[in-house]
Design a protein around this nucleic acid. Structure first.
Ligand code: ZN
Ligand code: ZN
Ligand code: ZN
Ligand code: ZN
Ligand code: ZN
Length: 762
DNA sequence: TCTGCTGGCGCCCTCTGCTGGTTGACG
DNA sequence: ACGTCAACCAGCAGAGGGCGCCAGCAGA
């Protein structure tokens, strides 16, 4: 078999075809390993490295002859991208110790295979460099706990170890905080469960439950009554025949007749998976998690749970307490236990409120000196020792730098269970979760509106206080209540990809703001001119409507009689008059508009203004009036494709408000004038006749270019056309503009549903 | 064994900025 | 009446600051 490049599944397949014992030897890596080894009811080991690094797996074939003679094969698991795959190897139970009498499997002989490799599959965390993640693996993974459903106290119990021989320094240090030793507990029901914690030191109880030399150290749980913690402590083997590999070896602190491993047969190193066996054997041996560097002989004492190394054995022993969950120092107030007296004292201070460390700058008190130092750095000196290598960020605390680095790496370890959002830190995930739970912790004390974020409430409260900040645009007088809105304002009004051209005069402007400013100078100008006739309007919409005349479109169709109209309001008026029996036209209003010159009264201001022209000494006003008068008599009509000038009867209605302004069609009927527009160039006027827009010469005649198309059978128009028998109803006519002259024909002020407007000059 | 110091983890906060819906003015 | 526009506003995520609390190291 190849000794390199195999995948885990290769090895698994291979192993499944034999009854093999497998041991993990990690000769290539000396750091960053986290693994789990556990065993099922059938006595099968499951080895699960949690980090994808090149690993050598030693396969020891079953010793059928029971003579201790085994075949050994090595398999190197390819590194590749296996950081994201699950490394689960089924290890068949050895029947003998690899070297010597021990390592007898603890199986009760029930090789029913209930704990299959598949069942043992677990997804390795994407990053085992995070102590937090690893911690979750060991404490929160119900799947593993289920698989460890051992109902016999004499089971092999091997759960976890962490040994982060930090090549990566700080990150591994972080992991060390969490990966503290082997962890398991057995409840009263005999179920083995993963549980956070570890044990070592003098208080541990040695339990030899197996017939092998594997020892389980039991630490009675003080926090979970009815459960016991089983912790194996492995010591480095001094007899390891290292060969040319830098293997971890194990010492035995008690007894050495068992658990002697060759290079190729050694147990999974504690740092990558602690193996614990317990059965009814007679070899009670404690394997401490202390190993000694082979190369340095007895000089260096290394912790097997972490990368701690010391030349002094007592220091290492003291260090080992850090892997214990013992908390001998109890708080008298809250019963909580602490590992050290100092921790207890600090904790007691939190009860008593004693804060011995005072800031010399601001006199703030702190429980510990470290808090004080940190406070001074944050508040007073701004000393930030931790620099980001990729940007200018620096921080007081290393953890802040680590958090910051995630914005460079994009790492988002905290996945929302409800959606795809993943957060770079716990706070943001917690805050995000509120949108799923509906929790809104922040309430406005004035209006009791609730918000998910404190700052949303803060922003909201400004609308009550009236003390809104004002952000003034530097480029115009606009003010905004929020900076972000000012930014949008600037983006929309003061930035433009390309210059903006005024459609009315073709001038060019750099942004929308200056364009709009300029556009106001066109106010009142009839800049929108018809290409086909002299019609002009202040509004492009009016021009669009006008263009229907040329295209002969009537988009508004009555569903009840299938008449069509060019304007919506004409359709509505038609429907009121002909299809709405309930329609009641309002009563005519009083004549309140009185001429100061002659005292004549009018109902509409526009008519008064028009009347005033006769008192105007200015000849032009007179001329205008005269031109209109003439225009009303002279009009053009298209009949069978020929333009025909039509001269209607003299019918001056200017002084008679009771009659609508009208022109006489070629049929002799009177056409009501709905709109009269003076062209911008002064070359003429338009009249709107029954919704038709008719250009007028300055003398009042209809322009030849403008075909007069008046639908005589248009019921919307005929009532007014036919001798004005049914005058336009005020409700049908809307005043659209406030301009005085808009009302000069008296269609203003009445109703609000029509759009017909009459314009005459400006 | 004590003690001071260092440092990590977790929690909560603020500031910031983007996004999209709403609203009122306007043409 | 209707569409457009721009300011208003809530919602929500990114980033960082500050601190409580505790473990662990190392020297005395
Ligand atoms: Zn201070
Ligand atoms: Zn950075
Ligand atoms: Zn979510
Ligand atoms: Zn409020
Ligand atoms: Zn212009």
């Amino acid at each position: 078999m190849d000794d390199c490049g195999e995948t885990i599944s290769d090895i698994q397949n291979y192993l499944s075809s034999f009854n093999k014992e497998i041991q993990q030897v990690d000769s290539h890596i000396s750091s960053g390993e986290v693994a789990q080894v556990f065993i099922d009811e059938a006595g099968r080991y499951y080895y699960q490295p949690l980090e994808g690094a090149p690993q050598q797996v030693v396969v020891v074939t079953e010793d059928d002859e029971q003579d201790g003679d085994r075949e050994v094969e090595e398999h190197t698991i390819s590194s590749g991208d296996n950081s994201n795959i699950t490394h689960t190897v089924v290890i068949s139970e050895p029947t003998q110790s690899v070297s010597g009498p021990s390592k007898r499997p603890v199986t009760s002989g029930t090789a029913d295979g209930s704990g299959s490799a598949t069942a043992a599959h677990r997804r390795a965390p994407s990053s085992t460099k995070s102590g937090r993640v690893s911690n979750e693996v060991q404490t929160k993974d119900g799947e593993v706990a289920d698989q460890l459903n051992l109902c016999n106290e004499s089971r092999v119990i091997t759960i976890k170890n962490s040994g982060l021989m930090g090549a990566d320094g700080a990150e591994d240090d972080e992991a060390l905080q969490s990966l503290a030793g082997a962890i398991a507990s057995v409840g009263e029901d005999g179920l083995l469960q993963l549980r956070e914690g570890s044990a070592s030191g003098a208080n541990q109880v040695i339990l030899n439950t197996g017939n092998s030399n594997q020892i389980v150290t039991i630490v009675p749980s003080t926090t979970n009554p009815g459960e016991m913690s089983y912790v194996l402590i492995v010591e480095q083997n001094a007899n390891d025949g290292g060969g040319d590999k830098d293997h971890t070896v194990y010492d035995f602190t008690e007894g050495e007749d068992a658990f002697t491993f060759s290079d190729d047969e050694e147990d999974p190193p504690p740092r990558s998976g602690v193996l614990i066996n317990s059965n009814s054997g007679s070899n009670n041996k404690q394997r401490s998690a202390i190993r000694r560097s082979q190369s340095t002989g007895s000089q260096a004492h290394m912790c097997n749970y972490c990368n701690y190394t010391s030349t002094k054995r007592y220091l290492l022993i003291r260090h080992m307490r850090s892997h214990s969950e013992e908390r001998p120092h109890k708080c008298s107030v809250c019963e909580r236990g602490f590992k050290t007296l100092g921790s207890l004292q600090n904790h007691l201070n939190t009860h008593t409120g004693v804060k011995p460390h005072r800031c010399k700058f601001c006199d703030t008190g702190f429980t510990t000196s470290g808090e004080l130092v940190r406070h001074v750095r944050y508040i007073h000196t701004q000393e930030k020792p931790h620099k980001c290598p990729e940007c200018h960020y620096s921080s007081v605390e290393l953890s802040k730098l680590k958090r910051h680095m995630r914005c460079h790496t994009g790492e988002r370890p905290y996945q929302c269970i409800h959606c795809t959002y993943a957060s770079p830190d716990t706070f943001k995930l917690k805050r995000h979760l509120r949108i799923h739970t509906g929790e809104k912790p922040y309430e406005c004390d004035i209006c009791h509106a609730r918000f998910t974020q404190s700052n949303s409430l803060k922003a909201h409260k400004l609308i009550h206080t009236g003390s809104k900040p004002v952000y003034t645009c530097e480029l115009c007088p606009t003010t905004c209540g929020r900076k972000t809105d000012l930014r949008i304002h600037i983006q929309k009004l003061h930035t433009s990809d390309k210059p903006i051209k005024c459609k009315k005069c073709t001038k060019i402007f750099p942004d929308r703001y200056t364009f709009k400013l300029h556009n106001k100078t066109h106010d009142g100008e009839k800049c929108f001119k018809c290409d086909l006739c002299p019609y002009a309007s202040t509004s492009s919409r009016h021009l669009d409507s006008h263009m229907l005349v040329h295209t002969e479109q009537k988009p508004y169709r009555c569903e009840m009689c299938e008449q069509s109209f060019r304007q919506k309001q004409l359709l509505r008026r038609h429907q009121n008059l002909y299809h709405n029996p309930q329609y009641i036209p309002p009563a005519p209003r009083e004549k309140t508009q009185e001429c100061p010159e002659c005292g004549k009264a009018f109902r509409h201001k526009g008519n008064l203004i028009r009347h005033m022209a006769i008192h105007d000494p200015d000849a032009s006003a007179q001329e205008k009036s005269q031109a209109l008068k003439l225009g009303r008599q002279k009009r053009l009509q298209l009949i069978n494709g020929q333009q025909v000038e039509v001269y209607g009867a003299e019918n001056d209605t200017t002084e008679d408000e009771d009659q609508l302004m009208s022109v006489e069609g070629d049929d002799g009927n009177q056409y009501v004038v709905l709109e009269v527009i003076q062209l911008a160039g002064g070359e003429g006027h338009h009249v709107m006749v029954g919704g038709e827009d008719l250009p007028l010469h300055s003398d009042g005649s209809l322009l030849p270019a403008s075909p007069l198309v008046v639908s005589q059978d248009d019921p919307a128009i005929n009532p007014t056309i036919l001798g004005l028998q049914q005058p336009l109803l005020p409700d049908d006519i809307k005043k659209e503009t406030k301009k005085e002259m808009d009302t000069c024909f008296g269609f203003d002020e009445d109703g609000d549903t029509g759009q017909i407007h009459l314009q005459f000059g400006e």
